[in-house]
Computed example of a mutant assay.
Amino acid sequence: MAKNNKDTLSPELVRLLKIFGIGSLVFVLVMSFFNEKRANNSGKEPSPMRITDAERLYFKNVRSAYYDIENRRDARMTVYRHGKRAKNTEEPTLVFSIILNQVNDEAYIFLEPNFEDLPIRLKWLGPEKNQEGEITFEGGDKFAHFEFAEQITPLLIDNATFEVWQIDNWEPLWADEKEKNAVMVTIEDYQKLIGKTK
């Protein structure tokens, strides 16, 4: 005759299950205190060019009065160009514009030269001796334009003088203080728009 097996757990197995259960609970509890990074389930990648409603409203209601506005309905974008920007087509100049992308809630800064030559080579001279350098802009996407603006911002703040390479010689750039100021104001407004103020 077969033995009558009862389904009971041995004391060692009960002790192992208690240790495993209590250890798992302690592990989960401890890890929950150190979980600072949250998952991004929005479906959108974080972007340094993202803007909030408050920043957009401030720009549209206060700062946009200083800009010429071009609505691009086909692309669902609005282009803002500073009203006091350089408009002379005889001399080479670089102008920045701010583009609001309504679909992605983003803002872009975009370089608009009045000449077609790429790459754009800038030579700058600082207010003190031995402060000089060269910056090259190859063109590219929104990040390349953003990076170029980031490179020249500290130089504009330090009141550096600029020259741009044209065909076979260096031409002065932003010689008129009004033009230089329009570039600086555009970059500052853009930095406020994306929440990056210096």
Score class of each variant (00 low, 15 high):
K37W: 07
Y80R: 03
D74V: 07
F146E: 00
S97T: 14
K6T: 09
D53K: 15
L125R: 15
L125M: 14
N104V: 08
V62N: 11
T161A: 03
V164P: 00
E45T: 09
A86E: 05
L13C: 07
E106Y: 04
V95M: 04
E177S: 15
P11F: 08
R73E: 07
W170C: 07
N104T: 10
T93I: 07
I167A: 11
L13M: 13
G140I: 07
N101C: 06
F115D: 02
E150T: 11
L111Q: 02
E12T: 14
L25I: 15
A54F: 09
R85P: 00
Y58D: 14
S10T: 14
P11N: 08
Q102W: 15
T93D: 12
P48Y: 10
D74G: 15
A65I: 11
L17F: 11
R121K: 13
S47P: 03
L173F: 01
S47V: 02
I109E: 01
G133H: 06
L111N: 03
L111W: 01
T136Y: 08
G23S: 12
V79T: 07
L156K: 00
E128I: 10
T8V: 14
A86M: 07
K84W: 09
G133N: 01
A54I: 15
W174Y: 03
L118N: 06
P154D: 05
E116K: 15
